[in-house]
């Protein structure tokens, strides 16, 4: 089944919001609403470890493998949606 960018972006925003809640990532920045254009580092101020941990959740949710190297090109939820869709189609 082909995934749409819009649908995946929406789901990823929800997964990220849940991740922040479950892991008590509780900074003023992390309480902002997560949207497709949210930048995980500059908007939410996640550190590199938190981004990698969130990625583990995403991999399991979509049953895809995301190479660590891909992370350097992922800044926003929209970027991540592109990577998930590409991995899903492999």
């Amino acid at each position: 089944m082909k995934l749409s960018t819009e649908a995946v972006s929406g789901q990823l925003a929800e997964i990220l919001a849940q991740y922040l809640k479950n892991n008590w990532v509780d900074t003023p920045a992390s309480t902002r609403a997560v949207t497709a254009t949210t930048n995980m580092v500059s908007d939410l101020q996640l550190d590199s470890f938190q981004v990698m941990e969130f990625m583990l959740e995403v991999e399991d949710h979509y049953d895809v493998a995301i190479d660590l190297e891909s992370l350097s090109n992922i800044h926003t939820i929209l970027d991540l949606a592109g990577v998930v869709i590409a991995a899903h189609s492999e």
Binding site: M52, M55, L56, E59, D60, D63, V64, A65, I66, D67, L68, E69
Partner: peptide, 19 residues
Amino acid sequence: DIFRFKHNDLQSLERRLVR
């Protein structure tokens, strides 16, 4: 190609081996 699995988590590793 580097893929991480959850710390000390057998199920997480197994899933990634399957993938």
